[in-house]
Computed example of a mutant assay.
Amino acid sequence: MTAPLRRWLTPVAAVLTALAVFAGPIPVSATPTTPPQPSGHDEEDEEPEFLGELIEVRNREYVKAKSQLAESEERQVALEKEIKKAEAELKELAPQVAEIATQSYKTGRVGAISTLLEADTPDSFIARATALDELNRVNDQRIKEVNTVKVRAEQAKVGVDEEVRKQQKLESDLERGKLEAEKALRLVGGTGLTGGLVDAESPVARVAPGRNSDGSWQSLGCTENDPTTSGCITARTLHMYNEVKRAGFDRFVGCYRSGGPYEHPKGRACDWSLQNSGFSPWYNNDMRIYGNNLTAFLVRNADRLGIYYVIWNRQIWFPASGWKSYSGPSNHTDHVHVSLL
């Protein structure tokens, strides 16, 4: 294995090994015998590929690709040795080829006949004919040997090119798998936050109102009726509410509330419960997966929805800094909080 390739594989292995370690089982108390189907999702939909499953697949693919890469490199080394051996043999055969060329020049077809006609006795004629036949046989054998070595060298070179292409594809596959796993972990806070129980992909949200051409967001006032209370929310918050609903998250939610600091009184925040009414900390896979998937949707669409921050399951996410530990008045194990710019 080349030094650059070894340096490349080391961080990949470290990342995927870490993923495998962190993707451990969740507490027994959080594992139901038969998790209920979250509301708002079609029971006939295909089962999502959870982050934990994605990490396992990436690990398996990595191990397989790494093994294939090592075998390919071994074949490449063997083929390169074969090329060098063939080139050395051709070099050794070069004088013989030159000798054959000289003989052919000196004793062309007419020269060979002349040699036979110059025989002054029957015995010498036979001797000369035998000698010419033996010379041709030896020359044919030498030429065949040279051609065989040349073909072997050419085939080995083709094999090396094929192995190099195969290695490039394997390296590309490894890098893509690494990036996909890292992206999934980074977006949803890793397996420590989700336990791996989160859909590996999320729907794409439509862009919220009030976004400037440079990517910044206009400041919006509380102008829209809040569909969850009698208060008001901004147009951007209403857009986020509708997009979350459109993505299939239909459980209880509350947005505007009067009094207190932060974004709720400004109509710029919503609390998404894990159940159909009220709030209760997650205690089974159904509730945890719902919170995980809702969080993943918000984080993955943050730049399209104009999200300020998200809080879920003792963690807070900001676009600028990613996920951090959170310990506020609420540990947010009973709902997903989202604030808008």
Rank of each mutant, 00 (worst) to 15 (best):
M1F: 05
T2V: 00
A3L: 06
P4Q: 02
L5W: 01
T10N: 11
P11H: 03
A13N: 09
A13E: 10
A14K: 10
V15A: 10
P25L: 04
T31K: 13
T31G: 01
T31W: 08
P36E: 07
P36K: 05
P38F: 05
S39H: 03
D42E: 13
E43N: 08
F50Q: 03
I55E: 01
V57I: 07
R58L: 03
R60T: 12
K64M: 07
K66L: 11
K66P: 01
L69P: 02
S72G: 14
E73A: 10
L79A: 13
I83L: 06
I83D: 05
A86I: 02
E89A: 09
K91S: 08
E99S: 11
Q103T: 03
Y105N: 10
G108V: 01
R109D: 08
R109G: 04
R109T: 14
V110D: 00
G111H: 00
I113C: 01
I113M: 10
T115L: 13
A119D: 04
A119T: 03
D120W: 09
D123M: 11
R137Q: 12
V138M: 09
Q141D: 11
I143T: 14
E145W: 03
T148F: 10
T148Y: 10
K150V: 05
E154V: 12
A156E: 07
V158Y: 13
V160N: 05
V160T: 12
K166C: 00
Q167W: 02
Q168C: 01
E171C: 02
L174Q: 09
L174Y: 00
L179M: 05
E182C: 01
K183Q: 10
K183M: 04
T191M: 10
D199W: 09
A208E: 04
P209C: 11
D214A: 07
W217K: 03
Q218Y: 02
S219L: 09
L220H: 02
G221S: 12
G221N: 07
C222E: 14
T223I: 11
D226W: 04
S230N: 15
T234Q: 13
A235H: 09
A235D: 13
R236S: 10
H239T: 05
M240K: 03
N242W: 06
A247Y: 10
F249R: 04
D250M: 15
R251N: 12
F252W: 15
C255Q: 09
Y256V: 04
Y256S: 15
S258M: 06
G260Y: 09
K266S: 14
L274A: 11
N276A: 15
P281A: 09
P281E: 09
D286C: 11
N293G: 06
V299D: 02
R300F: 02
V310L: 01
W312N: 06
R314Q: 15
I316A: 05
W317C: 03
W317P: 01
A320Q: 15
S321D: 13
W323I: 08
K324I: 11
K324V: 14
S327C: 06
G328M: 07
P329R: 13
P329M: 09
V336T: 08
L340D: 05
